[in-house]
Design a protein around this nucleic acid. Sequence first.
DNA 1: GCTCCACGGGAAGGATAGGCTT
DNA 2: AAGCCTATCCTTCCCGTGGAGC
Length: 343
Amino acid sequence: MITDARVLRTGFVPREVEHRDAEVTHLTEILKPLIDGDPADTTLLLGPSGAGKTCLAKYTAEQLRQEVLDVEYQYVNCWQNFTEYRALYRLLDGLGTTVDIHRQSTPRDELYERLRNYDGPPCVVILDEADQLEDKSLLYHLHELPQFSMLLIANRERELFASADERLTSRLTGSERVRFDRYSADELVSIMDARVKWGLEEGVISQDQLATIADAAAGDARVALSILRTAARQAHQNYADEIADEAIETSMPEARAERHEKDVETLTPHQRTLYEIIEEHEEISPSDLYEEYKERIDDPKTDRTVRNYLSKMDQYDVIEAAGASRNRTYRSVSETFGNLEER
DNA sequence: GCTCCACGGGAAGGATAGGCTT
DNA sequence: AAGCCTATCCTTCCCGTGGAGC
């Protein structure tokens, strides 16, 4: 059934990127100065999730590295490393200059000093989900350093600039942009098809089935591949020769919820209580939510702290905050699952 | 208008953790 | 081994802002 599990994984970068020729050309053009050892402009990659931003960034950087020996690239996911310190550490770690740095108690300035003194080959820094960075100073500092060329990945420009101060904004407004649209159903099918050829035995899944998955994924390649992977894994465990339609059906909600569940697991007991209350009510006003929270838990946190939790959980899509000011309500996301469009 | 409610920024202080010095 | 130092992270307190409803 499964011949190569790697190609179905989310982080996999294929040998050829499909349906993104224009974007690849554009990005390659932007990075061209690196071939002569000159810095490239900071570039924003914008578009909805699953549109191929991350994949294409890695792909183009890798291509460049193979063409020009003297170029490095580093990938940092800012969703996972959302503080300035962690993202910075992650970057230095990738560059191999953290050998003698021991996690904490090394001043931030010291880390920046290392970055400044970096004398390796020019480096392309891919900051994925850059809008998730709480503090954008890292972007500012990196922008100043000629050894580093930044690729910033975000859904929307507005979100990226939301918490940026003026000097950063003015610096970034002039930068290059590569925009991504959602994939069409046909494109998704051919993307999956390519992976199926590499990763699965012949004839385990039909074109019709791929089309069904593509439909359900609504233009999001990550979701499509996740459904495909889940269905294939299921068939594999059942020693089936081919993937059944039912397997695809059951994989859909599972694949969509995959990320969601992973996020729920990381919640603290306090946050989890909030989450459960919201799940039970499906929709609840802030004051009711807080009252109920206070009843359920022994030493409740202050309302301000709870607000911090809630906004974080909203960002992580664990819950949804709807409406502003007086008519704000919190609701469970499973209610609105059908459309993952926005965000 | 005014009031209520909720949001979220910022400052301050505590907890925590690791390195360095003695 | 103990104590000091310095960093982040979390929580709380204070407060300005802004929309909804009267």
